[in-house]
Amino acid sequence: MKLTEIQIESLYKFTRQHYVEYYDVQVELVDHLANDIEQIWEQQPELSFNDARDKSFKKFGVFGFMNVVESKELQMTKKYFKLVLKFAKEWLSLPKIVLTILLLFGFYQLQQYSFGYQIYLGIFITSTITQFSMLINNTRKLKRRQRQTQKKWLFEHVLNIQGLGNTAIIFIYFFDFPVSSAKEFLAMGDFKRAYSALLITAFLIISYITLVVIPKKAEELLVQTYPEYQIT
């Protein structure tokens, strides 16, 4: 016994009622529920649609769809950071590796001057503020798009909001700036100077990737993930 279009649509409503806001996760869950309901009917054809649906839903446990949503969010967040890593690796090939080496050398030499400390801090602060500014702006854009299409995509959320937010938090908590004053900055030894130059170069490259590269490729990446995204 196959589900009708009305029953399929009611399953979408059912997932939304149980706090599944992302359309792509809804599709996956509705497909799972529909197949399971049809299997339940094969064994118990006397069950009503609602009873078969509830029986299928109980298999998700006391937390319902929550574990599925959290798992998909983790999966998409990992995908985002794999993209960051992929684009970062491109900087290790020609011609970008030349620019990377020049940045490393330039930042290393910059540490001979007291104003170098202000430049380092300025880069960090500017990039972090830009991350949060883009996060706020992208949130507004996504809300407008969602109102127009009536669909919210998980990977779109990760690309435009969650990924930027996570990156900014990582910058704040893990940007281990080697010194706390310009005086200490000038007194660093060779190893610490090299480490500092490597850190600020990596920070700058990752900032460029998250603020420029990925946003430019966002629609392309979304269509690759969701072929139907292009027609929404």
Rank of each mutant, 00 (worst) to 15 (best):
E70P: 07
G61F: 15
I125G: 03
F87L: 11
F63K: 15
L221T: 12
L121D: 06
S127K: 02
I136W: 00
Y226P: 06
G64T: 00
F115H: 11
P45W: 09
W153Q: 06
V212N: 01
Q43S: 13
Q109S: 08
T149Y: 02
K141W: 01
Q230I: 08
K59C: 08
K143F: 01
E70T: 11
G163E: 07
K151N: 08
S127C: 12
M188E: 06
S56E: 14
I40Y: 04
M134Y: 03
K2N: 13
L29C: 04
S196E: 01
L186V: 14
R53F: 05
I123D: 01
S93D: 03
F124P: 09
Y19D: 10
Y229A: 01
P95T: 00
M134A: 05
T4Y: 02
V98T: 09
Q146D: 04
Q146H: 01
F132V: 15
K13F: 05
L222M: 05
V69H: 03
I169N: 09
F49W: 08
E156H: 02
I205C: 06
L164F: 03
S133H: 01
A218Y: 05
R147Y: 01
L164E: 07
L204V: 07
Q224H: 04
Q146Y: 00
Y80Q: 10
K59H: 11
D176N: 15
I214T: 05
E156Y: 00
L211K: 06
I119D: 10
A218I: 10
F14I: 00
S207L: 01
A218S: 14
K152S: 01
G64P: 08
W91T: 06
L142T: 05
L104C: 09
L104D: 12
Q7K: 05
S114D: 02
Y80G: 13
F191V: 14
M66D: 10
E21N: 03
F177S: 09
I200E: 06
Q148A: 07
V212W: 01
I129V: 12
Y23P: 08
L159V: 10
L3H: 06
T201C: 02
Q230H: 04
Q109L: 13
K79E: 11
E28I: 00
Q39G: 04
L103Y: 13
V62S: 14
L33V: 13
V30S: 01
N138C: 04
K2H: 10
R193P: 01
L110T: 04
Y19Q: 12
L222K: 00
